[in-house]
Design a protein around this nucleic acid. Structure first.
Lengths: 324, 324
DNA sequence: TTGTAAGCGTTATCAT
DNA sequence: ATGATAACGCTTACAA
């Protein structure tokens, strides 16, 4: 920006950034010059001076194939995250880092000062990345409680309580043989949802019946067949994802079981399909948007040096439709 | 990097960048200091000096929901792109820009000098973004031929010829009533694949039978039912995506039609599912990886000021399995 | 309120 | 082959 506006670059900088008071008249003149010249501050120079980049990365640690699966979770999370960051004038970028080489690159990228903060998506098992980043001073926040205990802040829902309450609702509705199709047991969501189910059943003195899926529709089909073979007497199922629930309901229909008359179904997620399934699915809603926004607020706070809660829990809600 | 290594920063810079000759002994000492101090060059400072960022963005212009659909196309493209860029020492970032506000942000981001180049994903209809970016001097390359004529370089397959050849194969196999399930007609892939089908049929003096889907599995189910109702006599179908083909084959099975005995099916994409469908799907393979790599090479060349082909076509292949 | 000037951490030019 | 030194374009004390 040649100060062809007629003023010093300090002044120009002030009006660009809205920092400090500038005489309204000057402000106007400078603004006009900016518009005419189509001036955009050079981010590299700005970063160099401010020690910030205003860029935050959402890191995709899972294999692309899973991230890009037809799950609605990630897209919504990214939207919530992006919107909230944008309100703060920050840019969200997505970066893929699904193997050791990718991790190393990301770490260098972040350490190098390319990033003001990093948001890590849910990950399988224990993962060295968050701690590594935190150690080198990069603000990090996790989407979902990590399996390994760590002091990196995270945002999540209370899977266990949510499921416990949903199963209690089934019990109160008079269901007496309640099974579950659980998720993968190397993910916190999979583990905790199963725990919630077990707790509710134990409290009621009922016997758990457990099968496992991978959160996908296809795995729901398989698990449901298994369940039908091994425990045909069940009259309710808590299914750890809506996708699996959809697959399971199809199997039940084909087997001639009426939902909810013969068997009640409760899912988890409240994806779009829950509204349109046959019958519409009673399910536990995760406020995914809000999770994303909370993630954004946390990492921004971290960057600004404000202290943040190490764990943020956003509330779920049992959405009652017709399947239970 | 305090030149605690004992040498000037010019020298340090040289060994870091491997530019020009440096005495091996000095090189070693400096490298050791770098390792010990865990030194990473500051990218902002580097960008400021070099006028490069070494960052390239893959822009996702479609609604997230489509990008994140269970199509394998984008993930593979991103992988091919990322791998090739990495070989050149560049970083790939993904940015979402699906509404006018997002476009504006991206444009500012790019113009600001944050990006060395931009790769735009396939887009519906005509899109002002590529031209806008090119106009302000940002290297741009398109994944897929744009609907509007433009001089922005693009990389694509030859949908039309690929489909024409596939349909000719059906004709040579003795099929006499060949229908198609076409893709969306606001996307080049959808349009050109339909054109190829029409061309082959016209050349053989046969009558086209056309239905439309959205490239998704569910839309394939719907289109197939429609087709069965309107033209039960068909003995072959070219289906413009494997996903739709999978849906269609399910409907055909339920209707008691044997594949390929009663009806031959050819899909498009050669996604993973093509190998595992029942029966395995004969389909047109798009070398998606290679598309991504070509995209990378093109944008890199553009950035370096080398002249590039305005259109790059990568070859497809008819993969014969059991459905035709 | 505005301007001056000193960084910010590199790379690149030019002597040496 | 190496070392000074001047950019690179911005923000921010500090001075006026």
């Amino acid at each position: 920006m040649a100060e062809l506006s007629g003023f010093s670059r300090a002044t120009v900088s002030r009006v660009v950034n809205g920092t400090r008071r500038v005489a309204p008249e000057i402000q106007e003149v400078v603004q006009k010059a900016i518009d005419e010249l189509n001036y955009v501050p050079n981010p590299a120079a700005r970063s160099l001076a401010t020690q910030r980049t205003d860029c935050y990365a959402f890191v995709i640690t899972e294999a692309e194939s899973r991230f890009f699966s037809d799950d609605e979770f990630f897209p919504r999370l990214v939207k919530g995250l992006g919107d909230e960051l944008e309100r703060a004038g920050k840019q969200l970028i997505l970066v893929l880092a699904h193997d050791p080489a990718g991790y190393a690159r990301l770490e260098k990228y972040a350490v190098g000062g390319h990033l003001d903060g990093v948001i890590l998506g849910s990950m399988h098992g224990t993962d060295p990345l968050p701690a590594a980043l935190a150690r080198v001073g990069v603000p990090v926040v996790l989407s979902g409680r990590p399996l390994a205990t760590s002091d990196v802040p995270y945002v999540d829902v209370d899977h266990r309580s949510a499921v416990r309450e949903a199963v209690e609702y089934l019990i109160q509705s008079g269901r007496r043989a309640i099974a579950t199709i659980a998720g993968p047991q190397d993910m916190v969501g999979g583990l905790e949802r199963l725990d919630g189910y077990r707790e509710a059943l134990a409290a009621a003195g009922m016997q758990p019946v457990v099968t496992y899926g991978e959160f996908t529709r296809a795995s729901g089909v398989v698990a449901m067949r298994e369940l039908l073979a091994k425990a045909p007497e069940i009259d309710a199922i808590f299914i750890a994802s809506d996708l699996m629930a959809e697959g399971a309901m199809q199997v039940l229909r084909e087997a001639g079981r009426r939902i909810p008359e013969d068997i009640a179904i409760i899912g988890f997620d409240d994806m779009e399909l829950a509204k349109h399934s046959d019958p519409p699915l009673t399910t536990i809603r995760q406020p995914v948007f809000e999770l994303g926004a909370a993630l954004a607020r946390t990492v921004l706070a971290l960057k600004e040096g404000r202290t943040v809660e190490q764990v943020t829990i956003v509330p779920t809600q049992l959405v009652r439709r017709e399947s239970a």
